[in-house]
Write a protein that binds this DNA or RNA. Structure first.
Length: 648
DNA sequence: CTGTCGTTGGGTCC
DNA sequence: GGACCCAACGACAG
């Protein structure tokens, strides 16, 4: 039997250390090994990916390529500018491939894609080896099985299930040698240009100079060498973050931190790390590396756990899950397993058996259909809500692609159940676009958590846009950094600048005025007034949440599926009404101290209905649409039991 | 049925 | 800085 000719397909495992899938490829004793990366049109067109994450990914690709070349000068990462689904069947033939090897991926989209690729491999007589899922501590499907087939909805469930699955695999070493690739001639293969999915559209077009740029240079790239592209080749606008991708970057930093300060690593408690810290931030910032597989979760886990065990033996203090460093990895596994169990509906309320409608109420569940809400959403996204703590966080996110976990809590709570009462799905999309560490399972899961849609339900625990930030950063240094127009505002007013007397505003060189759409007025920098009165809005949210919990609708309820659910929420169905208070969506009016008008500008035109939501739902496999975990709505509160007004 | 717990709240009082 | 209250969810153990 001739020696195997192996295609190793890198995806979200952009590393050489602790890669069981790569080890499986090498265990075949291949005569040639083609390390490839395929330009996935889903990532280019349909997933929301801004320049910062693109740049991070490119850094990871370059790093892997360099490491491959170190192992074998004739090897490097072959970047193929075409999606795997159309390209691989052609490559199998052109390169005489006998085996395709890749790491298992339980992400909803990845499962669908890999299924298609495996089918085409079967037809081509190519053997497929799916390596163990190693971006998590345990295999997500095994965790689900151990959890009785149900999604893991709490950290205790995850821990119990993980225990049943078994010990977390010890990391394996990077390979010491590597076969080179064979002939890389494309032998007349025609590039199949990816198609923008109808109804979904090219979400990232705004970041590219040309729709055609990404695939215009053919499969092998502009110089025909399968090079890692640049942002320019992608037609992408420049990135703004200082965060750089790459396995060697994170391994070096991890070693440095873990050996320099074992105590810190062993006693780490997430809730005690400051969301307001910058340069340096208060946490490791491993998340983007974990997402792209530049850092193995298992390697990270065991490096930390070894230190913890050592200190435990020395009778020194250590922290434990869920607050410890390893606890953070457990949460990640919890979300991966939940996503794996639920599939497509995980990313939405619609058709999701596990999630209540709740914060989707006022937004129609699937789209913002109120001009006021849309305006609030835009102001939240762009960091001009008039709440400096919220605005600083959103501006850091947009600029750097990363914010602290607790900062994510603050802005997510504010947008959903603790401020605007806008659907978590809108916020999740912004994070998806801007985060360098965006991980669908974790992002969706955390948004559901913060909006009290799933995983968490104590909606009366609400973050204040003033008090929470002050707790960490009384002087407001974080705000001064990311909202520079407030940099000279006295400490007394830094979290609530609209309360500053005109004299203080003048001395601080800023005027608190308007809605943030104007940067300055006659050369004087402007910072907006709060877009609503927070305490009033918080009460409205609490009342809405109480009502929503009482009704207890789930995403797979017939009335949700057929769109008639609004009948059950008469207050919300009417939409925002001027001056109405006591129901979610009521437009609040308030006047501030100096008697100026409040936040109401002319409402912008309502945005058109977004096609993405519905088409994503309709794209879900039939099994997912019909299956799922039907839940009894036994409370008998569907008719007329909603709460019209919260007791105050 | 009751009581307790849940990674990370806020405000007041001492 | 800690104790306690606020108004109160759902999961789980007993």
């Amino acid at each position: 039997m001739p020696a195997p000719r192996v295609l190793y397909w890198f995806r979200t495992d952009l590393r050489l250390h602790d890669s069981p899938a790569l080890a499986a490829a090498l265990a075949l004793h291949p005569s040639v090994l083609y390390p490839i990366w395929c330009w996935d049109s889903h990532y280019v067109y349909h997933a929301r990916v801004g320049p910062n994450r693109w740049q991070f990914l490119l850094g990871c690709l370059e790093d892997v390529s360099r490491s491959l070349t170190i192992l074998n000068p004739s090897s490097k990462l072959l970047v193929l500018r075409e999606p795997a689904v159309t390209l691989l069947p052609k490559l199998f033939k052109a390169w005489g491939i006998t085996h395709l090897v890749f790491e298992k991926d339980t992400d909803s989209y990845a499962k669908e894609r890999d299924g298609k690729v495996m089918e085409s491999a079967r037809q081509a007589g190519v053997e497929v080896v799916v390596g163990p899922q190693s971006r998590t501590l345990w295999d997500s499907e095994e965790v689900v099985k151990a959890n009785g087939g149900k999604p893991t909805m709490s950290i205790t469930q995850l821990q119990a299930a993980g225990k049943k699955v078994g010990p977390i695999a010890r990391p394996i070493d990077a390979p010491k040698s590597l076969p080179g690739p064979g002939e890389t001639g494309l032998g007349g293969i025609e590039q199949t240009r990816p198609v923008v999915e109808e109804g979904v559209g090219d979400i990232n077009a705004k970041y590219r100079s040309s729709d055609e740029a990404s695939y215009s240079s053919g499969i092998a790239g502009p110089d025909g060498t399968f090079s890692v592209p640049t942002l320019e080749e992608l037609g992408m606008k420049p990135a703004t973050t200082h965060i750089r991708g790459g396995e060697s970057v994170i391994l070096a930093r991890l070693s440095q931190i873990l050996s320099n300060d074992e105590e810190w690593a062993a006693t780490f408690e997430k809730p005690k790390t400051s969301p307001a810290a910058f340069e340096p931030q208060s946490t490791f910032l491993t998340s983007p590396y974990l997402h792209f597989g530049a850092l193995s979760a298992r390697y990270f886990y065991h490096r930390v756990e070894d230190i913890v065990e050592k200190r435990r033996a020395e009778k020194k203090a250590v922290s434990t899950p869920p607050v410890s460093l390893t606890g953070q990895l457990l949460f990640r596994d919890m979300y991966f397993a939940a996503q794996s169990a639920i599939g497509y509906p995980f990313g939405q309320t619609y058709n999701n058996a596990h999630f209540d409608i709740k914060t989707g109420l006022v937004t129609g569940g699937y789209e913002v259909d109120s001009a006021v809400k849309e305006q609030e959403f835009i102001r939240w996204r762009e960091g001009r809500t008039g709440f400096p703590w919220i605005d600083a966080i959103m501006r850091q996110l947009k600029l750097e692609g990363w914010i602290h976990h607790l900062a994510r809590h603050a802005v997510a709570c504010f947008l959903t159940r603790g401020g605007c009462y806008i659907s978590w799905e809108r916020g999740a999309e912004v994070f998806e676009e801007w985060l360098v560490d965006h991980e669908a399972a974790c992002n969706i899961g955390n948004w559901q958590w913060l909006s009290c849609t799933a995983f968490y339900s104590m909606f009366y625990r609400c973050y204040s846009p003033v008090a929470f930030g002050k707790k960490w950063d009384d002087n407001g240094d974080y705000i001064r950094k990311y909202v520079p127009e407030l940099k000279d505002m006295p400490k007394k007013y830094i979290y609530e600048p609209h309360k500053a007397p005109l004299k203080d505003q003048r001395e601080a060189g800023v005027m608190i005025k308007g809605d943030g759409s104007e940067a300055d007025s006659d050369g004087i920098p402007l910072y907006p007034k709060p877009m609503f009165d927070f305490p009033t809005q918080r009460d409205i949210c609490l009342a809405g949440m109480k009502n929503a919990y009482k009704v207890g609708l789930h995403g797979d309820h017939p009335k949700v599926l057929d769109g008639t659910w609004k009948e059950l929420f008469p207050d919300e169905a009417e939409g925002p009404t001027e001056g109405r208070v006591g129901g979610p969506g009521g437009m609040t009016t308030f006047e501030d101290a100096d008697g100026d008008e409040g936040h109401h500008e002319e409402p912008v035109a309502a945005t058109p209905k977004r096609s993405g939501r519905q088409s994503k739902a309709s794209r879900a496999p039939e099994s997912a649409k019909k299956g799922g975990h039907k839940r009894e709505h036994s409370q008998g509160t569907l008719d007329g039991a909603f709460v019209k007004k919260a007791k105050s």
